[in-house]
Amino acid sequence: MALLEFTNKGIYCPPADVYIDPWRPVSKALITHGHADHSRWGHQHYLCTEAAAPVIRYRLGNINLSTVQFGEATTINGVKFSFHPAGHIVGSAQIRVEHKGEVWVASGDYKVAPDGLSEPFEPVRCHTFITESTFGLPVYRWKPQDTVFEEINDWWRQNRDQGKVSVLAAYALGKAQRLLHGIDAEIGPIFTHGAIEKTTQVMRKQGIRLPETRRITQQYKSKDFEGSLVLATPSATGSNWMRRFKSASVGIASGWMALRGTRRRRAADRGFVLSDHADWNELNDAIKATGAERVAVTHGYTNLFARWLREECGLDAWEAATEYEGESLDKDDAEDMENEKDA
């Protein structure tokens, strides 16, 4: 019996009888981070890092949730679990599982390059590593984030000088706060879509310092937005919600913007290549750093990346079916809709 198994409910640990990021209701769930495809409704008990907890509580409401510190060990039925930074969003973790000398690491979603906001990714030695593969092709290679922020700042400045609004589409959880943190807030006022403002408030309350933002409400007239930066959810940028801006330039911040095709399909004025997932080099470096000989490849270009690891890196790699979604441009559309009514 393997220490971790891929079942139809999630990643299961038989000796401990717990699941990691399960997608069907279970009794005990260890959660890597708060994105909807990893932390779902309906489990009887949740365990996550203390830093990830506020957002998970905000999203899932009154749940039975315990927290641990990064690096702190929890033993369940003789299996030792510990959470280690995954660098994906604030509080996101890789979960290390140790039993009778065998070590597995389930990494959830991760990125290696530090973003200045999330706890930096920590390589964890293991025998078997479970890796995502959202951007697991050699065409995905990110520029340093400073370069991308310079591009965004330039774009905003230029729009401001033309009296335009800069509307930047980003995930409400993670990407939006990373943008707030990295942007040059001196350029002008920053407005937020309701869904983004709420997660931002949650994160401010846990002690994360972010520049001042104003939540968009009916009280603002189109004049008020001139020259400002507006952080909006991806679905809002394609809806009537945009009507409030007289003259706007629309940008999208996502790893998918690396491809011209996706950029053009979105009819955005600008695509900024900024992802909270590892690029090709990071994936390869991260896997190497674990020293793992066995690698389970989940969500993304699973079959191609697994083949690469097998044939070119000499690893025992295989595709594992999960219901994680990685960075989909449409992913939080449904979530936005929930929040739309109070925006």
């Binding site: 092709l137 050699p138 065409v139 491809l259 011209r260 095709g261 270009y301 191609l304 083949r307 690469w308 044939e311 070119e312």
Partner: peptide
């Protein structure tokens, strides 16, 4: 790029150009 041809070809199909 130091990658096998099959991986380049697959990447090309994804990029579409």
């Amino acid at each position: 790029a130091g990658i096998p041809l099959w991986l380049f070809e697959e990447s090309y199909h994804v990029v579409g150009d």
